[in-house]
């Protein structure tokens, strides 16, 4: 339904915003370090810290992609080796899942075929086919990698986890309700939220506002740092002359703001923490 999609888009956008800011910081720091001889300590510090954050984010992101791709690559042949006929594996426990990233396949266990009615199997297959159609395996791989890369940003992991749940809710919406209800009765481990959604409850946003607020502060700090680096390298106009007055612009002010936001984040018992406690 439209609402699930809206929530999914919003969460993705937030994650992409954090990624864009981090990428911007990395680019600005690299640009400053390579092409703009900066002299002031504040600028150099910003380049060092910004570059450090940017590079580590990139490395963690890449490592996450590699780790997940490896898991996918080893899972696929191992599932294939257990197939007794295409798409079916021998297992008494009723299960269904997708395997593979670029060309995902739906696998069900013999237990699922034995315990579920035809309508229930059809509903489970419709759910899994929805994942295949939307390339959820690929999307979630990227989402997890982006969230891993944003390790310094509170809320990124929650966004990724929420996106995984929303993908399940959206896949449920593609299946016949009655068949799905039957399947949920027989397959253990369906989350309460999915059942409630199937029974007609509205999908909720469900991401802790306090965590998001702390994430927003990090985002603001990133934006300030990018802005600061941009103006510091603004074709070396320090100090610049406008209206006949020599302006000494103050990156220090922005740096202090950035540092302040960071301190606020680190001590969880500050602003947000105390608001939450009340």
């Amino acid at each position: 339904m439209a609402r699930t999609r809206l929530l999914r888009c919003s969460a993705t956008l937030l994650l992409l915003l954090g990624t864009a800011l981090t990428a911007g910081l990395l680019l600005a720091a690299v640009d400053a370090a390579l092409f703009h001889p900066l002299s002031r300590v504040a600028d150099l510090l910003l380049v060092a810290v910004g570059g450090g954050v940017g590079v580590s984010a990139l490395l963690v992101f890449a490592a996450s992609v590699v780790r997940q791709a490896r898991a996918h690559r080893s899972a696929r042949p191992r599932v294939a080796a257990l197939e007794i006929r295409p798409g079916v594996v021998e297992d008494a426990v009723p299960r269904a899942f997708c395997v593979g990233v670029f060309r995902p396949r739906v696998i069900v266990t013999t237990g699922a075929l034995e315990t579920l009615t035809a309508a229930e199997v059809a509903a489970v297959m419709a759910h899994e086919q929805a994942h295949v159609r939307r390339h959820d395996a690929l999307r979630l791989l990227l989402v997890r990698a982006l969230a891993d890369g944003l390790f310094f940003c509170p809320g990124a992991r929650q966004l990724a986890a929420r996106l995984a749940t929303l993908a399940e809710l959206q896949a449920d919406e593609a299946a016949d309700r009655s068949g799905l209800a039957g399947a949920m009765l027989r397959i253990d481990g369906v989350s309460a939220e999915r059942i409630d959604r199937l029974l007609g409850q509205r999908v909720r946003w469900r991401i802790d506002a306090a965590v998001l607020a702390r994430g927003a502060m990090v985002a603001i700090a990133l934006a300030l740092a990018v802005f600061e680096l941009g103006s510091a390298t603004g074709c070396a106009r320090h100090p610049f002359v406008a209206d006949g007055i020599v302006h000494e612009d103050a990156p220090l002010g922005a740096l202090l703001l950035t540092a302040g936001a960071a301190v606020l984040l680190i001590s969880r018992r500050t602003l947000v923490g105390s608001l939450r406690a009340r």
Binding site: Q68, A71, H72, C98, D188, G189, I195, L199
Partner: peptide, 21 residues
């Protein structure tokens, strides 16, 4: 990470939800 499951939580089905399902 590598398998997209139909179900993989540890939530037990409570009687109320079971009846509704």
């Amino acid at each position: 990470v590598a398998l997209l499951h139909f179900a993989r939580q540890v939530d037990a089905l409570d009687p109320e939800r079971r009846a509704a399902l």
